[in-house]
Every structure is written in structure tokens, then in C-alpha cells.
Simulated scan of single mutants.
Amino acid sequence: MRDGGVGPTLVLVIAVGVLTATGVTLLLERSLTRILLGVILFGNGVNLLILVGGRSGGAPVVGAGPDEEMSDPLPQAMVLTAIVITFGLTAFLAAVAYRSWYLGGDDEVQDDVEDQQIVALAARNEVANADLGGEGPGDDPEQVDPEPPQRPRRSGGTR
């Protein structure tokens, strides 16, 4: 409890915990839709946590009342900024999830080929070969660029 003010209620603290825990749990899923919902819930939980941490009171306008009874405007400004950032991230993740669903038919994140190789090496208790460098441009298999596809030539007459 703060002097002269009432602290956060148990309901708000539980709401922060539930929103944050649910958001983190959904962030760890492989479906982009669930990750999107996790970002939204986690963002709302953190915003509520920031607001609960601020001092409650009257409007933070100079001259509206005594300075001791004003609420703290910094958490309110931080939450407004966090809302904008969360909205932008939500829009980006929604676009990525839609694009993944449109191209592949689902929105599940697949493992990379490199990830599967690392898992296989870890299962055999081996270490990947270190790239020490010093190879020529044609000798390093990691750095070889594929040739660009050639357009087929037109067969026929002259121009």
C-alpha cells in the first residue's frame, strides 16, 4: 500500500498473471495464429502491469488539483506507446500468418533444414565442422551461389 493511495487489487494482479502466462504459453506454440494471439495477450498483460504500477489519483493536469492527488502520467504514456507497438507487431504477424496460410495451406512453422541437421548432430553427440575460412570463392561449398536460370532462346527468324 502507498501512503494516501490504494494499491493494486488482487483481481488486477491475478489478471496480469493470467494474461502474461497465457500469452507466453501461446507464444511457444508452432502455429502462427496462436503466436499472434500470444503476442496480443502478452502485450495486454504487460500494459496492465505498467498501469497497475502507476500512482492512482486525479487527472495529471497542472492546476486541476493538488500535486499530491494527481496520478502519475508516465505509465499512461508508456502504455499508449506500447499499444501502438503491439498493434504494429500484430498487423505484421497477421500478414505473415495469412501469407503462410495462402502459400502453404496452413500456418504452422516448420523446422529449417539446418535445425534438423543440428538436432541429428546433437543426437549423435557430434560437433559441426567449423568454418575456418580461407577457401577460394569456388572452393567453399557454403558460399557457392547457384547459377541464375537462363531464359530459353527464341528459335526462328531474324528481327
Rank of each mutant, 00 (worst) to 15 (best):
M1K: 01
M1T: 02
M1V: 02
D3H: 09
G4A: 08
P8T: 10
T9L: 09
T9E: 11
L10E: 10
V11Q: 09
V13W: 03
V13T: 11
A15Q: 03
A15K: 00
V16H: 01
V16Q: 04
V18R: 02
L19H: 00
L19R: 01
G23N: 05
G23T: 07
V24Q: 06
T25Q: 06
L27S: 11
E29S: 14
E29A: 12
E29V: 05
S31K: 08
R34V: 02
L36E: 07
L41E: 09
L41I: 04
F42T: 01
G43P: 04
V46K: 02
N47L: 04
L48S: 06
L49M: 15
I50E: 05
I50C: 01
L51N: 03
G53F: 05
G54K: 07
R55W: 07
G57S: 12
V62P: 06
V62D: 14
A64G: 09
P66D: 15
D67C: 06
E68P: 02
E69T: 15
P73R: 14
P73H: 13
M78V: 15
V79W: 03
L80R: 10
A82G: 11
A82E: 11
I83A: 14
V84H: 09
V84E: 12
I85C: 13
T86G: 07
F87S: 13
F87K: 00
T90E: 03
A91T: 14
A91W: 12
L93F: 08
L93D: 07
A94H: 10
A94G: 12
V96G: 00
A97G: 04
R99V: 00
R99N: 07
S100V: 05
W101V: 03
L103M: 08
G105N: 07
G105E: 08
D106A: 05
E108K: 03
V109I: 15
E114D: 10
E114N: 08
D115P: 00
V119E: 15
V119F: 10
V119M: 09
A120Y: 02
A120P: 00
A120C: 04
A122S: 14
N125H: 14
N125V: 06
V127E: 03
V127Y: 00
N129D: 04
D131M: 02
G133H: 00
G133W: 02
G134Q: 01
G134D: 08
P137H: 06
D139F: 11
P141Y: 14
Q143P: 00
V144I: 15
D145P: 02
P146Y: 06
P149S: 11
Q150N: 06
P152N: 08
P152M: 07
R153T: 09
R154H: 05
R154K: 13
S155Y: 08
S155I: 13
S155L: 11
T158L: 14
R159D: 14
